[in-house]
Design a binder for these strands. Structure first.
Lengths: 404, 404
DNA sequence: TCCAGAGATGAATCCACCC
DNA sequence: GGGGTGGATTCATCTCTGG
């Protein structure tokens, strides 16, 4: 919640030791160039200098910064250093020195598709993020991804054991059938991340050079911190890190030497909730009020989501009797009656002839549901989760009765 | 065409200067472990040692080797140094020293899918290959790859020119139609290579630990050498580099300290066994047979999708009565009866106590559905699309009746 | 406490077999 | 015989145990 315009190393010294959970550091890459970018409306120009008298001069600066970062980190904290091939090897030598090679966790490769150029050689399409922890007791949240399409079901479900020859084989029960035991969660996230460089629609973005995608920062913050933790970006530029931190309910501290950059960051943080450009920047997958779950239900009927309406979550793409069809998904804390009331109220001005209400839990009061309500102009359907859950409960009751 | 059993640095010294076009160097990675693997028929055991008294000891060895490699390279030649995160930063510092940082060309990232393990942190899924040239006049053959599916066709085919305002625009002929002139070749190969890891059961596997896929070596040889050029691998192991060189009509020299390794290489060169994996040829997407629609339904209940099974589309993350819950989504061309039969058949071996069938269209035959089938262990639920569609049809009939 | 060695991990892949 | 599916084998592994 703090933004500071000032010299990074000097400001870092003012921060108390052992107070930060996560540092993301995105220093100049030692490109020996100046980086300038104008905003699209040509009104502003953001720039930073990346010219150094020598590599040692550059490393001196980074070294001091890293040492301060280590000091302010909690013992469960981690640092992510973003760089590219220009100086990555020297930077990692520094990291080994300051954090210890035993605390090296990962070399994360960020890959992206890029416009080609006519350079002789291979097209550069990645940058590197070094992940070091302060101690071996660092925080880490595993993210699980889908299984490879080539993986077969048995691999996922069956248990294995060593056979007589010490080779691994499927475990069989006495009757020779394969044993199915544990629940599987998916494949742990790897150290190669393919995240689009910039959304083509994101032309309205901040205009700051070397701006990183929010998605990249979100992933870093997710795996290495918890809610309400403190995220620090000592060279915050346009403030992408802090935007991601705010979105994920982390506290944040940002430092940048340029007052322009701090102003821009301030603006991005404020506009977070309302800004149109932010939506574009984060891509189609961004949803502000919608939970993942609600979004998935809307997706499955290819509905158009609506973000800023208290009663309506989305609309069907198709009209009914020439009028839009509004949709509401019952919220966790509301009865079906309440959900219905909100949907009807908000739909009044839209002149809907049909409304769809998705029931997600059994707080239903005296309300008709399912096909029974065909007389009215509200269709109530049950979410898959609800159906499955409801059915399971009944099955288990049935099972218990049979046992008793 | 030469295979030498002997000490790498000693044997390199015997090679005349400026005679080699391409060096591929795959030294131990400084893992501080021994690497042992038995052949599949258990008849032979190949191994190499990767234990060093210190990092300096290790770097000393590599440094001498690199210096010799530079000496034997032609001025148009290049070296590819294969390593992983263990010591990549130190190795690149050496390369900068010996070849000069101006001759750094690329940091190639080889990524692959891998068997996961239970480590805390991200799953390692890449290795690094440093590409340095001896001079700026190095040989390089650009390989062109396919355009991204999101690339606009017009951008691929049409010609552009500066318009009156100095902005780039599509070139038009006198009648105002876009001009199609040059043949576009595709997107230049990037520095991130996704190549499947050699399968444990692949015929190509020789039983040598750390064996590399032939495709990886083929790509390196293709971009940095021409036919009849001389390829050198001073630590050739099982000889993958030489196999690739022979396949691409290059001359080759291989050195390894182990006579066993040289014998194996000899045998592989005679037999030239290469497994052309299905995955490589057809691409991963050929396995992906889930439609967007089906995926969205699975997503909305947070199910784990399954790709390679005729009857099952996915599983719930949670087990029921200690057993997995299988899911099938009714396909467009099948009745609910057929869908049920396939789901039941495939679920039999998985010991499922509960199956979920998602009805997506009304071809239902004489089959019970919904809560009516609660006696059995199949839960049939209707897709949202089906529910909405069904309801609308009834409403419209009702409306038409009222009008007539 | 440290190190070596045994044991456990768990999905990716191509193979082989089965209808 | 050809498409699909269960199986075998691996880890420049990872973790735990015992001396």
């Amino acid at each position: 919640m703090t933004l500071i315009a000032g010299n990074c190393n000097a400001e870092l010294k003012k921060i108390e030791a052992n107070t930060i959970d996560l540092v993301y550091l995105d220093p100049p890459f030692f490109t020996q160039r100046d980086h300038i970018l104008k905003t699209r409306d040509n009104t502003k120009e953001y720039s930073f200098e990346d010219k150094w008298s020598s590599i040692n001069d550059y490393l001196e600066f980074i070294k001091e910064c890293l040492a301060e970062c280590r000091r302010v980190l909690k013992s469960t904290g981690s640092i992510f250093l973003h760089c590219d091939k220009s100086a990555s090897h020297y930077l990692r030598v520094l990291l080994d020195e300051i954090f210890g090679s035993a605390n090296f966790q990962s070399e994360i490769i960020w890959t992206y598709k890029r416009w080609s150029n006519s350079k002789k050689g291979l097209l550069d399409a990645h940058q590197t993020i070094y992940f070091y922890s302060k101690t071996e007791y660092f925080k880490f949240n595993t993210i699980y991804t889908n299984y490879s399409p080539t993986t077969n079901v048995d691999q996922i479900l069956q248990t294995r054991e060593r056979n007589g020859n010490g080779k691994s084989a499927y475990k069989l029960d006495e009757e020779g059938n394969p044993v199915i035991e544990r629940e599987k969660k998916g494949v742990p996230l790897s150290d190669v991340w393919s995240i689009p460089y910039l959304n083509p629609k994101a032309k309205e973005r901040a205009g700051y050079p070397t701006q990183k995608p929010v998605l990249l920062l979100e992933r870093i913050i997710e795996i290495a911190s918890s809610e309400n933790d403190v995220v620090l970006d000592p060279l915050c530029g346009s403030g992408t890190t802090l935007v991601a931190a705010k979105l994920l309910n982390r506290k944040y501290i940002g430092i940048d030497i340029s007052q322009e950059a701090i102003n821009l960051t301030q603006k991005r943080l404020e506009e977070l909730v309302v800004s149109r450009s932010f939506l574009l920047e984060k891509g189609e997958k961004s949803y502000l009020n919608k939970t993942d779950y609600e979004q998935k239900i809307l997706d499955s009927i290819e509905a158009i989501p609506v973000q800023r309406n208290g009663g309506i979550d989305g609309f069907l793409k198709e009209y009914y009797l020439g009028k839009p069809v509004s949709i509401r998904i019952q919220k966790n804390d509301e009865t079906l009656e309440e959900a219905k009331a909100r949907l009807v109220k908000s739909s009044k001005t839209k002149d809907c002839r049909l409304m769809i209400l998705v029931r997600t839990n059994p707080k239903r009061a005296k309300f008709f549901f399912g096909e029974e309500s065909s007389e009215s102009n509200i269709l109530v359907i049950d979410s898959y989760d609800y159906l499955i859950d409801h059915w399971l409960t009944r099955k288990i009751k049935h099972y218990e009765l049979a046992l008793s």
